[in-house]
């Protein structure tokens, strides 16, 4: 699956996108975040405060309990500050 990171999430992780294979035991966004946290301290700091993490699956905003699949594009970013 394709993962995209923006703003401070991108800076903490150290890349703007990556491809991973979704482990069989992970079914939702929340599970994916926990899986990513185990990848290293950079992911832990990116996902440290879930209150300031927003998620879009295939460019649509979703909640952390949204069910995901291998073919999804999942983007993580902080609350928006445009305008």
């Amino acid at each position: 699956m394709d993962l995209l990171y923006f703003a401070h999430v991108r800076e903490n992780i150290g890349c703007s996108s990556e491809q991973i294979s979704l482990p069989d035991n992970i079914s939702d966004v929340s599970g994916l975040i926990n899986h990513l946290r185990a990848k290293g301290i950079n992911y832990q700091s990116a996902f440290e405060n879930e209150d300031i993490i927003r998620v879009a699956v295939n460019q649509l905003y979703v909640n952390f309990d949204h069910v995901i699949s291998e073919k999804d594009e999942i983007a993580f970013f902080p609350p928006m500050t445009g305008g």
Partner: peptide
């Protein structure tokens, strides 16, 4: 439009 754009459009200021 401005009020929604602030919270719903994916832009981030640094």
């Amino acid at each position: 439009i401005m009020d929604w754009l602030k919270t719903d459009a994916p832009f981030w200021k640094k």
